[in-house]
Amino acid sequence: MTAKVLTANRLTDGIAVWWSAKGEWQTVLQGALVANDDEAAAALEAIGKRDLAANLVVDVALIDVNVVDGVLKPLRLRERIRADGPTIEYAPTCRAKEEAA
């Protein structure tokens, strides 16, 4: 099975989040809890459904990732961009704001 992680967007501000190995939603991909078998994937899916119902997150999805030397890399470009942010320098102030977020 392709490794999977659980992702969503936070309800209050829509920021992309990933379910971490620490058992919480975090705003970075690295450190996300990886499911390597169907049972673990089902457990992640259940967490997603629970937190969607609890109105913590929206747009919940399990996504495919590669794990190379402990570094997570989503298979789809779409998910890589969600994780890394826009691939462009979109405004003079963007970096500072991103760091502050």
Partner: peptide
């Protein structure tokens, strides 16, 4: 009401769209 958890996402989505609020990759 949505932020307080009184409305589900399914119910809220058409309401937010009627008011120009989308959910994109990184944020609303």
């Amino acid at each position: 009401r949505r932020l307080a958890g009184e409305i589900s996402e399914d119910a809220f989505k058409p309401l937010r769209l009627m008011n120009g609020v989308y959910l994109q990759l990184h944020a609303y």
